[in-house]
Design a protein around this nucleic acid. Structure first.
Lengths: 226, 226
DNA sequence: ATTGCTATTATGTCTGCACATATTCCAAAG
DNA sequence: CTTTGGAATATGTGCAGACATAATAGCAAT
């Protein structure tokens, strides 16, 4: 028995086999290190990994216990849309529908948490092999943009941002909604169809960067392994 | 400059400030360790963390480079439904709609990847303060169940499983769909409404455990910080 | 030009030790 | 009885050094 992965596997096996039931305290790192004949650091690595996965709960002095209600943590990759389209073997394209300065609506301001005056409003239709793939509605803080503006008809705002703007934090959420008239028309689907919607918000340390809402064409699926 | 978190922060700052542009090779661990005056292991910890977050790409011998297309990785917590309902300050309830042995339909078999004959088919309506919260359609491998069967009218199959069955792997996916007649009726919504659907599949090392599909009531949102 | 071996090199992991830090527990003081 | 103030202890992090492993690059032979 050597290697932190082997130890992680063994510990996981004991949890799964109920040798260490849910909610119980497991032996200390030192004890496990001795049992497995490895350094404590190796046990630490294995247990930390399991703690991050939500299988264990660790507290200094209190010890390590098996999580009572294992909250499954799934990690999803949020790719750039172009990469997503190309990964399906289709040809990516984009059409800029609008790009102008305007006062963002209240819901957007609320999500951004700060009013920076007029923002750049961009609407883009992302295409996969010519068919509508996703409709993007974005509000961008103009303070972070250079003059002249980047050519958002050539490069998607998202890709320009990841390449040129540093940012600190953000959040993302997913929901199912009926397609609005505009979205339905742009994607060529029936109005009111169930569409998958992604909303993302990102901030630089000091100011909001962008709020974006993506309406995916029907059939879109977000998946990951547990 | 000491502590792996400080180093992670500094490296991140250099990436964000474009001191190390996207796609470029950054100095080796040994070089950074010398520059920051720490042990190589400390640099390794910091860089590994960033690699897991998708900011860096590392390969043996090839070195470490700034990810060209930073794929944002978001981690979602998949809670037990009861916990989710109670976290909203509502009262959880469940209604068992059906529970019988049957041959699973082909799509379910396809997802499970293996035919184990008849499976236990369970339909449950999860309630939040009496209102429909989610409709669960589940197929369970009877081989993993005890006799007599657990009382799935008292405890949800999901909770029983996390408490009694060990499992190895699984996957999960999310999509937007129109509500089927049955789902609409159970949740008390208009037929065809856009609903958020979660599909999960789990396997023990040797055999499939369960396939489950959750139709969430409209308004459901899955969110996380980036 | 292509294939196959080898030396090189950067990261991955381990060890054994040390100190830091958070938290529990118990005992003494009020 | 409550509060306060230490020990005691388990995890978190650090260091220096070592070997393992993967992947590259260069060279040689076909």
């Amino acid at each position: 028995m050597a290697g932190w992965e082997a130890i992680r596997t063994e510990v996981l096996a004991r949890i799964r086999s109920r040798a260490w039931p849910l909610g119980t305290l497991i032996p200390t790192e030192a004890a496990l290190a001795q049992e497995f004949g490895v350094a404590r650091a190796t046990v630490n690595r294995a247990l930390s990994e399991l703690a991050r996965a939500g299988v264990l709960e660790r507290k200094r002095k209190a010890g390590t216990r098996v999580a009572a209600l294992p909250v499954r943590k799934a990690t999803l990759d949020i790719p750039v849309i172009r990469a997503e389209v190309e990964a399906r073997g289709e040809v990516y394209g984009l059409r800029l529908l609008r790009c102008d300065l305007a006062q963002p609506p209240v819901p957007v301001l609320a999500r951004l948490g700060q009013d920076v005056g007029e923002m750049l409003h961009i609407e883009t239709l992302h295409l996969a092999s010519g068919r509508g793939f996703a409709l993007e509605d974005r509000w961008l803080n103009p303070a972070i943009l250079p003059t002249p503006l980047p050519d958002f008809a050539a490069i998607s705002a998202n890709e320009w941002l990841v390449a040129h703007v540093s940012y600190a934090s953000g959040d993302i959420s997913f929901a199912a909604e009926p397609a609005s008239d505009a979205a339905a028309a742009a994607l060529g689907i029936a109005q009111g169809s169930a569409v998958f919607v992604t909303e993302r918000c990102t901030w630089a340390p000091d100011a909001p960067i962008t709020w974006v809402r993506l309406v995916h064409a029907p059939g879109y699926r977000l998946s990951t392994v547990l």
